[in-house]
């Protein structure tokens, strides 16, 4: 058991799938590697093997699944690399969020609140707000791609710090979109 844990803790998701540790990934290639590795470790191939080997094949298959699911999604991939690089991505507190971002999110929330609870006339501005947030999300994703490329070219910590800030902004915007959708959904 300890050996298994040891092996898995050394092998990160990138190594597990045998791909270069980059933030910009070719998703088609990633998928191909995942299929190859999954075939290698398919539990059916181990049906006649020892209990320990069968267990190992099962563990590998589930690890490969986790690795693929994490790396194929750009946001999860970025979070994964950030946490591997020692950035705290889960329980961040206010001191890590730039004040301009909080100010902006606060103002957007205020604007949204004014539209909320209104009658049918609020529908149009709410939809306008939604497409505005969608546009902001697209801009964030574009920016994320740039930071990915920058880090792949030169792995600097400042780039990762910037990336984390961007992920926070993304999360806030997604949240605002959810709030708008709640308003736009027909009352149950």
């Amino acid at each position: 058991m300890w050996l298994r844990n040891f092996i898995f803790s050394v092998n990160g998701y990138y190594e597990l799938l045998g791909i270069e540790r980059k933030l910009s990934l070719d998703v088609a290639e990633l998928q191909q590697r995942f299929y190859e590795r999954s075939r290698e470790w398919h539990p059916d191939k181990f049906a006649r093997k020892s209990e320990a080997e069968r267990q190992q094949a099962l563990d590998m298959s589930s690890q490969l699944n986790d690795a693929y699911r994490t790396l194929r999604d750009p946001v999860k991939r970025a979070q994964y690399v950030l946490s591997e690089e020692g950035f705290d991505v889960g329980e961040q507190r206010s001191r890590d969020v730039p004040p301009e971002l909080l100010e902006e999110v606060f103002e957007l929330n205020m604007a949204l609140e004014e539209l909320r609870g209104g009658d049918e006339t609020a529908k149009e501005p709410l939809e306008a707000a939604r497409s505005n947030f969608e546009r902001m999300l697209e801009e964030v994703d574009l920016e994320m791609g740039k930071l990915f490329a920058a880090w792949d070219a030169m792995p600097a910590r400042e780039t990762l710090a910037e990336l984390r800030g961007l992920l926070n902004r993304r999360k806030y915007i997604q949240n605002l979109i959810q709030e708008v959708d709640k308003e736009l959904a027909p009352a149950a």
Partner: peptide, 13 residues
């Protein structure tokens, strides 16, 4: 004081 928690989308003034 303006603070926030990105994970849950909270902002508090």
């Amino acid at each position: 004081g303006m603070v926030g928690a990105p994970e849950c989308g909270d902002v508090m003034k």
